[in-house]
Design a protein around this nucleic acid. Structure first.
Lengths: 111, 111
DNA sequence: CTAATGCATTAGCATCCGCTAATTGAAACG
DNA sequence: CGTTTCAATTAGCGGATGCTAATGCATTAG
């Protein structure tokens, strides 16, 4: 059975599961804005591949674009990670970390 | 360029990117322990497929097993999600939520 | 013991994925 | 104007992926 429109969690996970594409997202995130050409430079893959990855990331809501002249500048949309956060939250992942941080904090305050 | 041993983030993401396999993880998580046969019941796929998914999840560190007689009981290993948490943390997703919860906790402790 | 059950593993298949190379179109440059 | 640059899109390929069906191996039941 094929879901017509995949679950948002699935979309985001799949977008970030590929190392190359995740690296693209990371570079987009680190730069405030970055063009496709510049993104292609250190990537080790073709410009076409980069465009395809950006398309996936955009469809997942992880990046946004702004066209200016013949350039297209991409920026990260971290709010696109929300499905992941929600999913992990639902499975109680943050509690431990929260408590860990709380513990660290309390240890600092009252060692 | 192929990484011999994929990044842990990649391994976990890929393990959870597939809806069927993610559903398996979720069911394992909800049950404290669950056998493969019981896991196969509502899954819509074959027992063989379930075993394969469990193998992936195990390799990703997301589940652990306990053999007893001819049954094998699986349980979730949520600490296997840590690579995801760390990765997302590095990209600043949790800060707001974490602080919010930390604040709530501290308010409970010392109102 | 024989039969049945639980699980892992394998071969094979259809599909999906990431990539390249090439094309197209738009915009800047000489 | 022609040329160059930027970016998206497409066809096609090799390899990965998820599945089934079948097999094999333990373990339990009758």
């Amino acid at each position: 059975m094929i879901e017509a429109t995949p679950n948002p969690v699935t979309t985001v996970m799949r977008a970030l599961a590929d190392p190359t594409r995740r690296a693209v997202f990371e570079r987009v995130f680190e730069s405030k804005e970055i063009s496709v050409a510049e993104l292609t430079r250190g990537s080790g893959v073709t410009q076409g591949a980069i465009s395809q990855h950006l398309k996936s990331l955009k469809k997942a809501g992880l990046v946004a674009e702004r066209a200016e002249g013949r350039n297209v500048y991409y920026r990260a949309a971290p709010e696109g990670l929300e499905p992941l956060v929600t999913w992990m939250d639902h499975y109680g992942v943050f509690w431990r970390e929260r408590f860990q941080n709380l513990r660290d904090l309390l240890k600092e305050i009252d060692p």
